[in-house]
Structure formats: C-alpha cells, structure tokens
C-alpha cells in the first residue's frame, strides 16, 4: 500500500513539476506577445496619454508574470501540499505593501516638502 502510494506520488510529481513541451511553448508564445506589445507601444509612442500607457504596460507585466509563474515555474495550488502557494501569497502581500507604501508615503513627503503655491501664498 505504501509502496503504491509512493509510486503514485512520484508519477504525479514527475509529471507536474517539469511541465510539458506544449506548456513551455504556450508560455513562450504568450510571453513573446505580452513583451512585444508594451515595447511596441512605448517605442512607437502609440499612446498619447502617458498615464493610460503606463497603466496598460503595468497590466501587461502583471499578466506576463502570471504566465511565467504558471507555465515556467509550474505554480499550482497543489504543489508541495499548498505550501508554495501560501508562501507566494504571503510574499505578494508583502511586496504590495512595501511598494505601494513606499511610493505613497514618499510621494506625499515630497509633495509636502516642496513649497507649493498655496503654501507660498500663506507666507508673510
């Protein structure tokens, strides 16, 4: 029984951990497309609205990171009994807090340090 379990786990583990040729090719084609579009957008200046362009290329990056996670790093909720996914979710939460927190705090710090128009007006 235990030998059977072991063989069973080995087989599923071997299949899931390394992916397949089809998986790698799908991942590669998707990431080529997801890389080419933002580069094309910025290099040709296809978007006049820079803020919208920035949001779009960030969205492409997020999608491409997910594609790499799924097709190249073979992330799925079941790998390593769910512990990899748990560690990933924890890390993503930390990364979001670090990035958004730093940018938010430092942006406001910069904005408040600059003698803005309304502050200058209030000066004697």
């Amino acid at each position: 029984m235990s030998a059977h379990d072991h063989a069973d786990r080995d087989r599923t583990h071997g299949g899931a951990a390394h992916g397949s040729l089809r998986g790698y090719l799908i991942g590669f084609v998707l990431s080529v497309i997801l890389t080419a579009i933002p580069f094309w957008m910025v290099m040709t200046g296809a978007m006049d609205n820079k803020q919208a362009a920035a949001i779009i290329i960030m969205a492409f990056a997020v999608v491409q990171i997910v594609v790499h996670m799924v097709f190249f790093l073979h992330m799925n909720p079941a790998s390593e009994g769910g512990w990899s996914m748990l560690a990933l979710i924890f890390t993503v939460v930390l990364v979001v807090i670090v990035l958004s927190g730093s940018l938010w705090v430092m942006y406001h710090l910069n904005a408040n340090m600059m003698p803005g128009l309304h502050e200058m007006r209030e000066m004697p």
Binding site: A61, I65, H68, M69, F72, L73
Partner: peptide, 23 residues
C-alpha cells in the same frame, strides 16, 4: 526555478525601469 525566477524579475525591470522611464 532560479532561472525562471530571474526572468520574472526582469519583466518587472524592463516594465518599471525602462518602459516607464521612457514614458
């Protein structure tokens, strides 16, 4: 895993540093 992870980080670098820098 290490190699694919570096590729994931590079996605962040070219988006955040290079593409956003040019914008």
């Amino acid at each position: 895993m290490f190699w694919h992870f570096l590729d994931v980080v590079w996605i962040g670098v070219f988006t955040f540093v290079y593409l956003m820098g040019m914008l």
